[in-house]
Design a protein around this nucleic acid. Structure first.
Length: 817
RNA sequence: GCCCGGGUGGUGAAAUUGGUAGACACAAGGGACUUAAAAUCCCUCGGAGGCAACUCCGUGCCGGUUCGAGUCCGGCCCCGGGCACCA
């Protein structure tokens, strides 16, 4: 008898057993259907926070549940090790990023082990390992050869004082976080991956992804933003180049009264050379960040260029304006403006006194007052010459045709999605395997020279990447002509590493190529768990990358993640926990005080997975109390557990009730674990079961056997959440074999049968009483009983019954007047 | 600004397909045990009235559909996430 629950002893013993018997080592040849269970790997920021604890506990619950259900489960863990915080730490403390990262990994790995997560550590890697990132370079060069990679100018946040590129996060109120200098938009040559070439597939496949939440699929749909429309060409007076704009509303073309271009647009730059005021305005537009949210909330401003564009159908001249809300990155960096039928154009036109022309009228009684607002609904064309009277679809077609006939436009499908800029002007990332030669231009690093290793013995002087001044890295002979050339110093966006790590886990030691056939055994990931903050970028890039690998012949399926569990955030002072917000929410002292099982149980009990919540420690005492109660309950029934099997024919009524509770708990837990992915209610179901066991007073050997059945169920059901205590209790209950190798029990359906059910009786929708009826009673019998039930009959006096509704096993509603 | 979520007792939440609102816990209050404390156990616990039986009100706000709405529809308010260089 172990009178006192000692979590530290129990947890150490269980972890030692799992470790020694390699309980969580996954093999392709093991029995059972494969189940790849993955929680998003962490950035090694230093210490785990409660957001990590939640994510990995949820992953581990799914892992352990599926093991009980007989699957061959693989749950790996690794490190998303490149990124900005390591550089910031290096700048601040002088610790090289490689050292800082390695230390953090060691510490966080220890914390994960302390939490008892059933990971297959034999597959662990960090993305900063050259063995890992060399394959990223390899694939990049394959894509380069295929034309899936290209180079073009793109704007970045430039800190003019620190002479460096800033991440959006490093821009605070339009100023550099270290220098405090106003940030400028600056163009730079950058590498891009053609994700837009896969836009259609990325969009269409969402239809069939039943295992993903509707909200995430919607976010991705909106992000990709497919819009069918028309490209319209405008001839520019005095220029040979045409100005091309995209519109989803060609039906409003006759209402265009001006054209607007981005401040970075060549026409704007050309015009600015003639006009100092315009040059000032263009310069002013550069005093802004690259963040779309900032652009969207900016006060709309513009200035005429003095140039005019010829309307392709009317031949009228339209003034060309520079506007601060037109983005060079999106489309052609120019838009046609129809103030009558676009709210933003309307506001701009009102501000600058540009003509507002109505060319659409409502088809049914809607208000249309262009002096108050733009009319943006679809309607009937007016003031549009030969197109008058047409509705949206016909107007769209007719104007598209007219443009096509004049070779001044064409139908196109545009996407909001932009190509993926993968260059970063940073040190702590995967080097881009390119060499710049004065004679040969851009030259890929030969396969034999991969990986291009990132030098790790670096000193940060100031805030710029050490690579740009490091001759040993920089100076390299051109692979084509042998002349002295310059190595690319940009590194990859860290989303590159996280876009394929889950395939590498399947064959972490593959020597060539990046994954081997084991990837097609484990992939796709069956259950992917992670924070909702990754709903768009990471998940979209990963889907894209998976298709790139498929088209390279490395993978045979189309989508990387079958089922997706999007976690709500663990908030701290109402905001998401992050590295930059500090290390609050460190679980270490909680682990020391309460043990892993209590922390895990409290976390699971706190809220359903998809809900965000503010973490507080109040729940820990309750979780510990529950585990202690469960422990004591088993201790007090140890003899009962060796009792004979249950004689179903001779059960007392209370024993029958307890058996039903046991069966109900197993049914509910199975549903919550397997279908609903809601684990807080599993905890409460087990709490209810243990409460029922406590209240039950066994009077016979048969009763004892019923208690034994209930206790075994309680321990097994809670085991994915609190695995250590469950393991210990399982052993104490005289069961052979470790709990992690057990099978989920068959449910005794006969225990669930109820002869008598309680129904609620409502009168006009208000609860007035309750009745007990035989489960198989006729409707007429139930209704008759309901009408005469205590407290019900008085609400029926002097009333006429209009309707009687019976919901089987639930309620009766009598409608009277 | 745009896209996606969320809002239920003092607190975390439950209510799975439109069918008993508040399960299960935390906190609080009262009691038992104890020399005392801790631990444990028992009771009360949305608001108002009655101080019982019971009744009325109540799921962010306003309106609608329905025999019946926390759940569905329309409009609003507030909070969180994402917006392409935080990961």
């Amino acid at each position: 008898m172990n009178a006192v629950y000692d979590p530290h002893k129990v947890e150490q013993e269980a972890q030692r057993y799992w470790d020694e018997s390699e309980s969580f080592r996954a093999s392709e040849s093991a029995e059972g259907e494969k189940y790849y269970c993955l929680a998003m790997f962490p950035y090694p920021s230093g210490r785990l926070h409660m957001g990590h604890v939640r994510c990995y506990t949820l992953g581990d619950v799914i892992n352990r549940y599926h093991r009980l259900k007989g699957f061959n489960v693989m749950q790996p863990m690794g490190w998303d090790a490149f990124g900005l915080p390591a550089e910031n730490a290096a700048i601040k403390n002088g610790i090289p990023p490689a050292v800082w990262t390695k230390d953090n990994i060691a510490y966080m790995r220890g914390q994960m082990q302390r939490l008892g997560f059933g990971f297959d550590w034999s597959r662990e890697f960090a993305t900063c390992d050259p063995d890992y990132y060399r394959w990223e370079q390899w694939l990049f060069l394959k894509l380069f050869a295929k034309g899936m990679v290209y180079r073009k100018n793109a704007v970045v946040n430039w800190d003019p004082v620190d002479q460096t590129v800033l991440a959006n996060e490093q821009v605070v109120d339009g100023r550099g976080w270290r220098s405090g200098a106003p940030v400028e938009r600056r163009e730079m040559a950058q590498w891009f991956l053609k994700i837009t070439a896969y836009a259609e597939e990325l969009l269409d496949e969402l239809e069939d992804m039943d295992g993903w939440p509707e909200s995430v699929k919607n976010m991705q749909r909106n992000w990709i933003g497919r819009s069918p429309g028309v490209e319209v060409d405008f001839l520019v007076e005095g220029h040979s180049e045409r100005l091309t704009v995209f519109t989803t509303r060609p039906d409003t073309l006759m209402g265009a009264t001006y054209v607007a271009v981005a401040a970075e647009h060549p026409l704007a730059l050309a015009a600015a050379q003639q006009d100092p005021n315009l040059a000032d305005f263009v310069a002013q537009c550069k005093q802004a960040t690259t963040a779309e949210a900032d652009m969207a909330t900016l006060e709309k401003a513009g200035m005429p260029t003095g140039l005019n564009a010829r309307h392709p159908l009317t031949g009228n001249l339209l003034p060309i304006w520079v506007a601060n809300f037109v983005l060079m990155e999106y489309g052609s960096g120019a838009v046609m403006s129809v103030p009558g039928h676009d709210q933003r154009d309307w506001e701009f036109a009102r501000k600058y006194g540009i003509e507002i022309r109505q060319v659409i009228e409502p088809t049914q009684g809607n208000d249309c007052d262009l002096s108050a607002a733009a009319y943006t609904e679809r309607g009937r064309l007016v003031n549009s010459g030969e197109f008058d009277g047409l509705r949206f679809d016909d107007g769209f077609d007719a104007i598209a045709k007219a443009l096509e006939a004049k070779e001044m436009g064409r139908r196109v499908t545009n996407y909001r999605l932009r190509d993926w800029g993968v260059s970063r002007q940073r040190y702590w990332g995967c080097p881009i395997p390119i060499i710049h030669c004065e004679d040969c231009g851009v030259v890929p690093v030969p396969d034999a020279d991969l990986p291009v290793e990132l030098p790790t013995d670096v000193k940060f002087e100031g805030v710029r990447s050490p690579l740009v001044t490091m001759d040993s890295f920089l100076r390299v002979p051109c692979p084509e002509c042998g002349a002295l050339a310059r190595r690319e110093t940009d590194t990859f966006d860290t989303f590159m590493e996280s876009s394929w790590y889950y395939t590498r886990f399947a064959s972490p030691d593959a020597q060539s190529p990046m994954v081997d056939q084991r990837a097609n055994y484990w992939a796709p990931v069956d259950h992917y768990v992670g924070g909702v903050e990754h709903a768009i970028l990471h998940l979209l890039y990963a889907r894209f990358y998976y298709k790139l690998m498929r088209d390279e012949g490395l993978l045979s399926s189309n989508e990387p993640f079958k089922r997706l569990l999007m976690l709500g955030m663990v908030l701290q002072d109402g905001k998401k926990m992050s590295k930059s917000a500090g290390d609050a929410g460190d679980p270490q002292k909680l682990l020391d005080k309460y043990g892993a099982d209590t922390v895990r149980t409290a976390m699971m009990f706190a809220a359903p997975p998809d809900q965000s919540f503010e973490w507080n420690e109040a729940g820990l005492e309750g979780a510990l109390r529950f585990l202690k109660r469960l422990w004591m309950l088993v201790q007090s029934h140890l003899e009962a557990l060796s009792a004979d099997s249950i004689d179903k024919a001779r059960l007392s009524e209370s024993a029958q009730r307890l058996r039903r509770k046991t069966a109900e708990t197993l049914t509910k837990a199975d549903d919550d674990y397997g279908r609903r992915w809601q684990f807080n209610t599993v905890v409460s179901a087990v709490m209810e079961l243990t409460n029922a066991i406590s209240k039950f007073a066994p009077r016979s050997a048969n009763d004892q056997a019923v208690v034994g059945e209930a206790l075994r169920a309680a321990v097994l059901v809670i085991s994915p959440i609190a695995p250590h205590i469950a393991d210990a209790l399982w052993g104490q209950m005289g069961e052979t074999g470790s709990l992690v190798d057990q099978a989920w029990p068959e449910i005794d359906e006969s225990a669930l049968i109820q002869n008598v059910v309680e129904l609620v009786v409502q009168v006009n929708g208000k609860v007035r009483g309750k009745i007990e009826v035989a489960a198989d009673a006729e409707k007429s019998v139930v209704l008759a009983q309901a009408r005469v039930a205590e407290n019900v009959s008085r609400f029926l006096q002097d009333k006429t019954v209009r309707k009687e509704i019976l919901v089987p096993n639930k309620l009766v509603n009598i409608v009277v007047s």
